[in-house]
Amino acid sequence: MLAILAKDLRIELRTREGVSSLAVLGLLVLLVFQFAFPERPTPEAAAAALWLAFVLAGTIGAQRTFLLERENACMHGLVTAPLDPAMIFVAKMLGNVVILTVLQFLVVPLTVVFFDVAPTSRLGWLAVVCFLGNVGFSAVTTLFAAISVRIRAREVMLPLLVLPLVSPLLIAAVQASARLLGDGSAAEVSVWIQVLAAFDVIFAAAGWLLFEYVVRE
């Protein structure tokens, strides 16, 4: 399992294809958002832009999860290896989490600068929200990237499958971030963090259990 994760990360480190294109894409979304909000931006707008950039770049990035395996017919080797499919899921999901974390390290500071918000006192909580949002999103996209890579029209199918399912995650993450970037109370944020944590647990478990049925040949 660790070997798969290490392999994927090594490819990424060598080529930097994924992260660099995602970073530029995230930057572009933030820019477009700026053009759409001509007046003085609010923390709500900043949170919305942050998570939109994350979701758009993340969905496109997740397409790549299994693409390399597909192109080189390695998936067959992976599946037939004496390895629990659930482990492949975990490795692939962690790979996505790492790449998206890098993306967040770029997008979050840019949001802070572009939208002129200052989360000074609550940086830790913002990191928690970002991490939980990242894990839940990666769990869902990894599971469905494995599906979409095997059917026609996969570029359209992945967002179509993923976006409705992550809507509760998106609502929770945007609401929590808006309060952290603005001036919400800790109690308000903790409710949303609970929703995010529940989402993460449910979908990581679902991916763990159901991945076997997706990759079975």
């Binding site: 869902v140 599971l143 469905f144 599906i147 095997r150 059917i151 499958l161 409705p164 399912l165 809507s167 509760p168 995650l169 609502i171 929770a172 609401q175 409710v191 949303w192 929703v195 529940a198 989402f199 449910i202 979908f203 679902a206 159901l210 049925y213 997706v214 079975r216």
Partner: peptide, 27 residues
Amino acid sequence: AVARYAAVLGIVGALDIPLIMISVRLW
């Protein structure tokens, strides 16, 4: 295989319902 994919989506969609309910209420 598509039947299996659809079944996975059917199950995951059902798991999503309580989360959707909670989050839209809170929202």
